[in-house]
Amino acid sequence: MENKAISCKNLTKQFGDFKAVDRVTFDVEQGEIFGFLGANGAGKTTAMRILCGLSFPTSGEATVAGFDVYKQQEQIKKNIGYMSQKFSLYDNLTILENIVFYGGVYGVSRVDIKIRSDELISTLGLEKEAKKLVGELPLGWKQKLAFSVAIFHRPKIVFLDEPTGGVDPVTRRQFWDMIYQAAESGITVFVTTHYMDEAEYCDRISVMVDGRVEALDSPTNLKNKFQTDTMDNVFYQLARGAKRADS
């Protein structure tokens, strides 16, 4: 279990009678790009909150970066990065201020913040924009910057919650280039998306339906198993049976 980036066993979260997450079991390998899919309301967000150390499970076991989700929430938070479409950066801070702020929150030393932020701004080609407010950046750039900030403290795992929603097709692909680079450098990537072509970019995918993980495999194996040639169909076959997708 120590070698896995994430390990869940019978993980359950109950709100009253409602099992948002229902005996979920899976492992994520280190350096893997893991796609976490599911219909609206399937329990993805609840599961993600537990894995990010923001919510306690009702029962079951889970470790993230080797830390226990019950007892070591703070260590988990220090060892992960997180970004979502909804919340990523402060619009009314400049690009540089955002980087310095997040670097500080995650305990990166001043010296390292200086070195890494110079490096980051030059890799992103944002030298001219570094002192501009983040709110003035186009969405695509914001998302790329948000991702870089989420891995600025070199976390073991990064959680991405629909990182590319609404982004144009070119920028979306540049974003995935960055994900691949992060994975190559050894960061485990845990990502949710509604774009089924992006599901194909993952090493493995899980599909949640009504609180349960109903399928987990590589995209190729899933397509073989469901006898179809698109992930779209795999997802459709699994999720159309969902009872609470809309409740």
Binding site: A39, G165, H194, D232, F235, A239
Partner: peptide, 10 residues
């Protein structure tokens, strides 16, 4: 259909 899953989109 933004942010809506594949089934609902269909």
């Amino acid at each position: 259909t933004t942010g809506v899953d594949v089934v609902s989109r269909k």
